[in-house]
């Protein structure tokens, strides 16, 4: 197989992982760091800090995994590395 193409695939994978993990970090850790100021606000009837940590984070995690699976499965075909 074409060496450059393989390396490009791996670079794209690492880039995608980095982007998704930044979002993962933002909804969980940054959300918790901002808990005190966010607790003054309300969203959907929830104190905002509670909503961010109890719901936004968990729902985002599920979406991130499906996005990763979807994009990678496309990428496999683009680079011809699917099983």
């Amino acid at each position: 197989m074409d060496r450059e193409k393989l390396e490009a695939y791996h670079r794209e994978n690492v880039r995608l992982i980095t982007i998704l993990l930044i979002i993962w970090f933002a909804v969980s850790y940054v959300g918790a760091l901002l808990a005190k100021p966010l607790s003054k606000l309300t969203i959907f009837g929830f104190p905002m800090h509670y909503w961010v940590s109890a719901q936004l984070s968990v729902i985002t995690f599920v979406v991130l995994i499906f996005v990763y699976a979807y994009v990678m499965n496309k990428l496999d075909q683009k680079y011809g590395v699917e099983e």
């Binding site: 992982i17 998704l20 993990l21 993962w24 969980s28 918790a32 808990a35 800090h49 509670y50 940590s53 109890a54 984070s57 968990v58 995690f61 599920v62 991130l64 995994i65 990763y68 699976a69 990678m72």
Partner: peptide
Amino acid sequence: GYDGLAYIMGWTGGYVLLALLIAP
């Protein structure tokens, strides 16, 4: 109370690490 959400986030957020960095 709020502090218990460490368990909620921890036990779900781990699957992001698992899905992106290990399982495939």
